[in-house]
Design a protein around this nucleic acid. Structure first.
Length: 552
RNA sequence: GGCCCGUUGGUGAAGGGGUCUAACACACCACCCUCUCAAGGUGGCAUUCAAGGGUUCAAAUCCCUUACGGGUCACCA
């Protein structure tokens, strides 16, 4: 029996040869230096922040080199695959503006010339290459049962040996074809293992794009490549797919670093050009002084749904991920306030090689706050409305009822060189401006509690606001006139209209212009901290100001 | 346990033999500014790079040991 016949016997009914598959997926026609990379999740659950980060990096490196970023579904563990897993992944990623140039687009469809992009639909391909290896005597059928495997592991562990199927433990390696055929005909189940040519005492070196040069022992483990259900293991599928799809760079979590010797060996055995690896450290957080991995169970911010739910702009998240990717991005953005992420040249050398990447929510919020402050009033209005449509009906109604008025509110101290930074997320908006709308003011003013600061005497408060509205306030005043009238009010009532004078002789006055302004501010809004008072008064208008003052 | 990786201020982090008594950002503190807050301005905030040892004229940067943190050792990905 020839090797070819033997391979046919072990893996029957394979439709194409590996040469045919090579021909079906020719080299991509891309510019020099183009990076082809992918996101390759298992449809076993929802993606988390770490995945988004990985996606962000992959997309950015592919885009800036004129390359390709595609989605491949690794569903070879059929027992863990969840229903609609692909849709769930797509839905979770969609709100963030991650764009795949090719790959799976639904449970059944894909776009691109290198598909299918779902591994269970590629079974024939993996088998074709497994047959090649069997023919070349680089892979073999192994009959080790679960019990035998457990026993070997237990023995190795007891004698403090390395664990795994290698060397003398790879006992099916040299079975004769006749014996293999005989056992299969008797109904024994088998899998295909690689016949590892490696020696544990040799070192291999590889250069990780992020972690730098790493030296590790050669792989000498006879790794499984085809499981008993006929599907490939991750290791085999990775190497075949990334070769056929002409992936140049694999950006993945660093739990894979220790598998690199296996993967590199597989590339070599198959005669493929290896991909370049970039291994990402896990995202961690500082939990009361201890650094630990971000956890979907413990940390809401690990879950992608957290962001849209809280009205955190996706652009801010991208900006944050950009600074996590290359920390010099932040400085660049400072120099180029209108710069876009796509204008920045990301560099693998600038990726942190530390053992963990801190995921810092306060920092994200800071970036978000700056981002929102740079938006125009129309953009803030639109984005807030979009958020409110899904998560805050009351806010949605009020924004839709008063579009122009709302935009005028958003425009206070906005669209200028150093804009006001009020909101770090769209869910902050209502809490900051509710008092500008009569409906909300009536509803919430009692609960809000008037936050008077230094002047708390009721009669004095009434005296200040009544004098002000009757004698001084006019909707048509410009800002300077408005301010000088506030000063006049102070002079009339015995408060210092000039802060410097007040600081020099505080005893000469009942208080100062800041105290008086605060009384007006609080009486109008209930709050001691608001945007520019002049703008607020003007927007609300004399009649309504009067009504609100009468409530005091 | 074996094998890998990491450890710089309150936080993130730059820097990979001399220009480092350590960039930058966030946080914090103080003062300044014709109203509060925000913004802005000025100044402050690691004599030291996990600890110890070594190489060198010279170390945060190279080497060794220790400690701590992370990852991995499946017919899971």
């Amino acid at each position: 029996m020839t090797n070819k016949e033997f391979a046919d016997f072990l893996l029957p009914n394979v439709k194409h040869t590996w040469e045919e598959y090579e021909a079906m997926y020719p080299e991509r026609d891309l510019p020099e230096g183009a990076i082809v990379t992918r996101y390759a999740p298992s449809p076993t659950g929802l993606p988390h922040m770490g995945n988004l980060f990985q996606n962000f990096m992959s997309m950015v490196f592919a885009n800036q080199t004129g390359g390709v970023f595609y989605l491949r579904i690794e569903d070879t563990d059929t027992s863990r695959t969840v229903e609609n897993g692909i849709e769930k992944i797509l839905d979770a990623i969609r709100p963030f503006g991650i764009n795949f140039t090719e790959g799976a687009i639904s449970e059944t469809e894909y776009k691109g010339n290198y598909g299918p992009y779902i591994q269970t639909q590629r079974e024939d391909i993996y088998k074709a290459y497994a047959k090649k290896l069997i023919e070349e005597e680089k892979a073999y059928a192994s009959f080790l049962s679960k019990e035998e495997l457990d026993e070997i592991r237990a023995r190795q562990s007891a004698s403090k040996e390395r664990i795994g199927i290698y060397g003398r433990y790879a006992k099916d390696r040299n079975l004769s074809k006749e014996e293999v055929i005989d056992r299969i005909n008797k109904g024994e189940s088998y899998i295909i293992r690689i016949k590892s040519p490696g020696n544990f005492f040799n070192k291999i070196k590889y250069t990780d794009l992020i972690k730098g040069t790493i030296e590790m022992p050669e792989n000498d483990i006879d790794e499984v490549i085809i499981k008993s259900d006929g599907l490939p293991t991750y290791h085999f599928a990775h190497v075949i797919d990334d070769h056929l799809m002409h992936t140049t760079h694999v950006i993945r979590g660093d739990e894979w670093v220790s598998s690199v010797p296996k993967h590199l060996q597989l590339f070599e055995i198959l005669g493929f050009k290896p991909v370049r690896y970039a291994h990402l450290a896990p995202l961690t957080k500082n939990d009361n002084g201890t650094i630990r991995k971000l956890s979907k169970r413990l940390d809401p911010e690990a879950t992608l749904a957290f962001y849209p739910e809280n009205g955190i702009p996706k652009e801010a998240i991208m900006l944050y991920l950009a600074t996590v990717t290359n920390s010099n991005f932040e400085g660049w953005l400072d120099q180029n306030p209108n710069g876009k992420i796509s204008d920045f040249k990301f560099d693998f050398n600038k990726c942190s090689s530390s053992a963990s990447t801190l995921y810092d929510l306060p920092k994200l919020y800071n970036i978000s706050k700056n981002y929102i402050s740079r938006l125009t009033k129309d953009e803030v209005y639109d984005a807030t409305l979009e958020y409110a449509k899904v998560y805050d009906e009351e806010l949605k109604d009020i924004l839709e009822k008063y579009p122009d008025y709302s935009k005028a509110i958003f425009n206070i101290e906005r669209e200028q060189k150093k804009p006001r930074k009020d909101y770090e997320k769209y869910s902050d908006v209502k809490g900051q401006i509710w008092y500008m709308y009569d409906e909300l003011f009536e509803k919430y003013r009692d609960d809000a509690g008037y936050d008077y600061q230094s002047i708390t005497d009721k009669d004095e408060i009434r005296n200040i606001i009544n004098t002000y509205i009757d004698k001084y306030y006019d909707d048509n005043d410009d800002k300077d006139t408005w301010f000088s009238k506030i000063q006049n009010l102070c002079d009339e009532l015995g408060y210092a209209s000039n802060m410097k004078e007040y600081k020099e002789n505080p005893d000469n006055f009942k208080g100062n212009i800041a105290d008086v302004s605060t009384v007006i501010r609080v009486s109008l809004t209930t709050r001691s901290m608001t945007p520019d008072l002049y703008e607020l008064l003007k927007l609300i208008g004399k009649e309504k100001i009067k009504e609100r003052f009468n409530l005091i």
